[in-house]
Design a protein around this nucleic acid. Structure first.
Lengths: 187, 187
DNA sequence: TCCAACCTACCGAACGTTAGGCAGGAAAAC
DNA sequence: GTTTTCCTGCCTAACGTTCGGTAGGTTGGA
């Protein structure tokens, strides 16, 4: 348990936060999850705010790596745009979980400052990557790529939120399909 | 205070829930808001779950009236579609608040059953109205109106969520404009 | 006389957090 | 090579606060 306890805590906290939010993240439950006592978490994180900020940062660091890997692996920007909603879909499949960024945006007013600062990271990473890929695919003019990337990110987030409220992944799929039909996403 | 205390509580609870969620809604704070003691709330609502469900139900009942009134007043479906995002925009202007439906979708796993049931009401009302207006405006084929309505609702919700995380209403406006440019919303 | 509306005074549970201690392995001192 | 020191990782036990909720009393108008 010891050498990677910090990582184990981070991963468990992320999963819980994606299901119940930062407010729904309890030290006692989290500790039980990873097999230690609540007080022991303080050996790895100075406070709940610190833990939350670390989880948030790790979250967008991971997605940055994942998105770049996808682009490198396929080498096809259009295919990337087709696959992009899959990252959100997987959260839903995994226990009807939400993107941590969406949860933090909702809980924004209740978050400690350090977490508020990290909230934007995930969106920034997604939007920058989408803008780049949109231009590569020739789907939009470079000038409009940022705005379109933001629109896609926001719309996909909204689709995930809606599907969660129905506990129904197929609603997410249908929404993505509508985004394609309407022209928001390349068809 | 007495005759409309129940209404006062409902309204105050709605406002707090739109800022801090159901979990962030405290009986003591809520009571202080409306000028009574926490225990007195139990004279009007049997439990927090009951209060939450009543707030949620009232929320979508109100929007149903509001949307129908808009259509009747303007008589112009295209103008209605142009005005539609305004209801979400107003929440942001009013203390960076979120649509209650989005908050409940995020908190879904933490909500009492009665509230989970009410969560869908708001979305249903919006989607039904949008589908009707889209057909009236001739913007989509009747067969596709439901799907497009859902897409618009989800996308606008996502735009509100994104703008909230930046505490910046202009981000919402920019996103709506992108939805128009891309063809999701009629231009 | 009665009842709705509100009160005071609690309850048990859960929360984040702290103090202080114990085991054990690595590093330092002899 | 042995002993001592020290640090890491975890523990138990409690802290004060806040939570939703309850019991029972007071008050004022119909």
């Amino acid at each position: 348990m010891s050498t990677n306890a910090r990582e184990t805590i981070l991963a468990a906290a992320r999963k819980t936060a994606q299901a119940h939010g930062y407010g729904g993240l309890s030290y006692r439950d989290l500790a039980a999850d990873v097999g230690i006592k609540a007080a022991s978490i303080y050996h790895h994180f100075a406070s709940k705010a610190d833990l939350g900020a670390a989880v948030a940062r790790r979250y967008w660091e991971d997605i940055a790596v994942e998105l770049d890997a996808m682009l490198e692996k396929t080498g096809d920007p259009l295919e990337c745009l087709r696959l992009y909603p899959g990252t959100f879909r997987r959260s839903l499949e995994d226990g009807n979980r939400l993107c941590l960024c969406s949860f933090m945006s909702a809980e924004y007013a209740n978050l400690p400052e350090a977490m508020q600062r990290e909230t934007q990271g995930f969106a920034d990473v997604n939007i920058a990557w989408l803008a780049k890929v949109l231009v590569m695919a020739g789907a939009v003019k470079p000038k409009e790529s940022e705005a379109r990337a933001r629109a896609i990110f926001a719309a996909v987030s909204g689709a995930q939120l809606y599907a969660r409220s129905r506990s129904d992944v197929s609603q997410f799929d249908a929404l993505i399909e509508s985004y394609r039909t309407s022209g928001l996403l390349p068809a």
